[in-house]
Design a protein around this nucleic acid. Structure first.
Lengths: 347, 347
DNA sequence: CTGAAAGCGCTTACAG
DNA sequence: CTGAAAGCGCTTACAG
């Protein structure tokens, strides 16, 4: 130990010498690349242990000349969050250019199973790793299977397809996000009695459905004084969401809260503000961006539940790189958290 | 561009060839290592641009043979959070052993300026980087200055010393954490009127003082129905905190909330539960650990404000490595967020 | 099943 | 001010 520190780093050469074999043989047992005579394998392993040898990851990557060609499949014409995600992907890809990483972005209609699976098939075989905002559909699972069986690593991003051959999901637990929204809305209402309006993009989206499920579960179990209006689908569209919100505000005199599961938050803010009942109705929305940040400071939105697109972009690339290298990931580092923002803890 | 992709990676050799110089000269302009004839420098820069050359970071680190010897200075006999932090540092140091990183931990009495500065001076000159849980005191600033002027990079961790020669602070904005606690406590009380008890470890600790400041500021400005009891100092000790909490619960009939700025949360939970007023008093505490996690699920604690010790350990090492290499950091990745946890978004 | 040797893309003395 | 050459610690054909 003291030897090792004084003598500098322990190299594969030191291990080879001590085991009485060549570095190639050490490499073979280290990376289980080829069969090594058991006796030699044992001697190598003993030497590794005796010297507390740690292979130099940098040297290995350099020698291997491995490059990482990644493709990110994102929704075409996405909402603010998806645009932020694309920006983060581009920015981090630039950052990783010095580590042989390149990332293309392919925009497609992720809500159309045929279009999405066609896009996936079109990139199959061309990349080392693919990250996609998934739709949970047999056709899509099939396309993911195709990519994976052609040697690429696949991760889902933001929206998962649980049954599919993806090796990892980079995103939040959406049911937990919905429960979190419910608890904060419920506690902010502090025993007030009334109705809660819910607007989703579309309940056909797995993440929206899961948030709704979690939200409804907590309200039903813990806030008996609150009742849920039927979910309205705003298609993540501000105008449509505004009309839906304006409608419920006008119809329901005892509307005390609104939960926006998807995008289009600016429309709902507009409806709240022009109704004059903004102060009175607790409003919980998703994702932190220019609009929701401003609205939190304004008081138009009370709580934002969020996932960090920068973290997701970096995590997707780290996970894909690790999978390509068959290396382990740091689970805690790659966990995407359900973030809560109020006006006081904004970044 | 297409050339570059077809031909594989652009190397320093390609740049040298195109510029009509040797690789050593390219290296000189790349790293501004020595004076290069302006004409040659210009040709090199032109070649870099023309070929869109990106130096290979891995090869550079390998050739440089740089190692990173870090020292983490932590409080001896610290609370749960500090123990978690130490665990995370050890675990991440093990992870980075394959990248020539080693990290020692030195435990000392960080609350005693003399002891802390003596510890700092004892490691000065022996490491490439030092991360310390700081105390904001002239003696400590002086010791930090000493380490920095002997060539080591210094970052503060969790607790900052703003005037000092540290190049970065790895931790949260504590005033924001206090404001966040106040907003959630205020909103959870939903207009109820009464007194708020505050327990701190010690207001001599900068982070505790800042949290208190932020908390008081928001309550004063936004929650006129709530009034603050004088801060009690529990020294982060569960027994003492229990007595303080029990005292205020007994004395103040209209106690509606408690904010624990520091550690010792288990003591306050005990006081609340044995008083039978746990359900009635909103309790906000700091840091997520076995105790507070359990208490959130129990309902004994309503909200936890936290910083992630795993993120802090990883960030401190990344920042120290970057500073040693004179490389840029990714600001968003190194920002430590003020996390909010309720029972529903626990990791 | 094993080893000698070349090579990955940089950096670093050293000589000029 | 500049370049030829060795070296960082691995991996990879290739020959045996």
């Amino acid at each position: 130990m003291i030897q090792a520190r004084l003598m500098g780093r322990v190299t594969i050469e030191d291990v080879a010498e001590r085991a009485g074999v060549s570095v190639a043989t050490v490499d073979r047992v280290l990376n289980s690349r080829a069969t090594v005579r058991p006796r030699n394998a044992a001697r190598v392993e003993a030497a590794i242990r005796a010297l507390n040898y740690q292979p130099d990851r940098l040297a290995a990557r350099l020698a291997r000349q491995r490059s990482y060609r990644f493709c990110f499949v994102l929704p075409r014409g996405g909402n603010i969050f998806m645009r932020d995600l694309a920006t983060e992907i581009e920015s981090h890809a630039r950052h990783l250019a010095g580590e042989r990483v390149s990332a293309d972005i392919l925009y497609t209609d992720i809500f159309d199973p045929e279009a999405l699976s066609a896009s996936l098939l079109s990139v199959s075989g061309k990349y080392d790793g693919v990250a996609l905002v998934a739709l949970d559909h047999p056709r899509v699972r099939e396309a993911i299977q195709h990519i994976a069986s052609h040697g690429a690593e696949v991760v889902t991003l933001v929206s998962d397809a649980p049954g599919a051959a993806r090796s990892h999901f980079v995103g939040i637990e959406n049911a937990a996000a919905g429960r979190t929204a419910a608890t904060l809305l419920g506690r902010y209402l502090g025993g007030r009695r009334g109705k809660i309006g819910i607007i989703a993009g579309s309940l056909a989206l797995r993440d929206h459905a899961e948030r709704h499920f979690g939200f409804a579960q907590v309200i039903a179990a813990e806030y008996r004084d609150l009742s849920l209006l039927p979910v309205q689908e705003g298609r993540d569209n501000p105008e449509r969401s505004m009309e839906l919100a304006a409608g419920m505000i006008a119809r329901e005199g005892d509307l005390v809260g609104i939960y926006n599961i998807g995008a289009g938050t600016e429309g709902i803010i507009e409806a709240l503000q022009s109704s004059g009942r903004s102060r009175d109705i607790v409003f919980v929305a998703h994702e932190l961006n220019e609009i929701t940040r401003h609205a939190l400071l304004d008081g138009a939105v009370d709580v934002v539940i969020a996932q960090d697109p920068g973290h997701e972009a970096r995590s997707a690339m780290r996970v894909l790189m690790a999978r390509c290298d068959k290396a382990a990931i740091i689970a805690a580092q790659e966990r995407i958290s359900v973030d809560i923002f109020v006006k006081d803890n904004l970044p």
